[in-house]
Amino acid sequence: MNARILPYVLILPVTLFLCVFFLYPFVLVAKQAFSTGACFTMENFREVTTYWKFPISMRNTLLLAAAVVPIQLALSLLMATMVTRMQKGRDLVLYIWTIPLGISDLAAGLIWLAIFEQSGFLNTMMNGLGVVDKPVNFLSYQHPGVVFLAIALAEIWRATAIMLVILVAGIGLIPKEYYEAAEVFGASPWKRFLRITLPMLRPSLQTALVLRVILAFEIFAVVAALGGTLFPVLMGETYAYQFDLLNSGAAAAMALIILAISIGFTLIILRVLRVPKGASI
C-alpha cells in the first residue's frame, strides 16, 4: 500500500474510536468549564483558582509527583535490569514485582492505611521490637512530613510496576550482540548500562515516564485513604466540585487545569527523550 496513506489507515480505527468515546463527551464537558448559563466565561476558572485550597492542592500534587516519579523511574530501571540478568526464578521474581499492578488504588489505600494507622501493623512491629513504648500516631496533622512520606511510599509501592512492565518488555528487545561487543572492548557493566541500555531503552523510557507522570497528576484514592483531609490534591478537589458541590462547571475547569499540566509535562518528556524513527545508535 502507498506509504503516504498507510499511516492514516493504521491510525483510523483509534481515531474513530476515540472521537466517539472520548472526544465527544470530552467536548461536552469542556464546554461546561467555559460557561455559566449560556455565555462564554472564565468565571469557573477564576472560582477554582481563587479558592484558598487551590494553591495547596496544586503544590501537594506537584510535590508528590516530583518525589514519587523519579524514585519509581530509578527503582523500575533497577528492577528491570535485575530481572533480565537473572538465570533462575526470573518468572517468579518478575511476577512478584508486578503483583501491585493487579491492585486497585482503593484497595492499595486500604492496605497502607492498615499499616500506618495508630493500631496498625507498623506500630505493632515497632512496639514488638521495643522501638516505641506506645503506638505512634503517624497520620496526624502534627506530622505533615510523615503523612507525605506515607503517601509517597504507598504510591511507590503501588505504581512502580506500571513502569517496570513497560521497561522489561523494552529491555528484552535490545540485541545482546551490543552487550557482547561492549564486553569485548572491556566496557564496565556500569558503562554498558549507561551507553547501551539507557539509549536503546529510550522509547520505552519515554512511554513509561509519560504514562506515569500523567497518572501521577490524577492521584486521588491513595491520598484520600492516608492523608484524609490533611493532604488535598487537585483530583480530590475536582471530585468535590462535581459531587459535593454539584458544580460541574468548576469541576470541568479543574479537570482542564490538570489536563493542561499533564500536557505540559508530557511535551517536556517527549522533547527530552526524543525517539528517532526506527532505532539506531
Binding site: P7, F26, V29, L211, F243, A251, T266
Partner: peptide
C-alpha cells in the same frame, strides 16, 4: 513508530488526553 506523517504530534497528544482527563466527569 514507522512513519512521519502530518498530524502525528496532534494524534499522539489526543491519545494521551484520554488518560489525563478524569473518567467520572465523562
Amino acid at each position: 513508530s514507522r512513519f512521519e506523517f502530518r498530524g502525528k504530534g496532534t494524534f499522539r497528544l489526543l491519545i494521551l488526553l484520554t488518560r489525563a482527563f478524569p473518567l467520572p466527569l465523562l
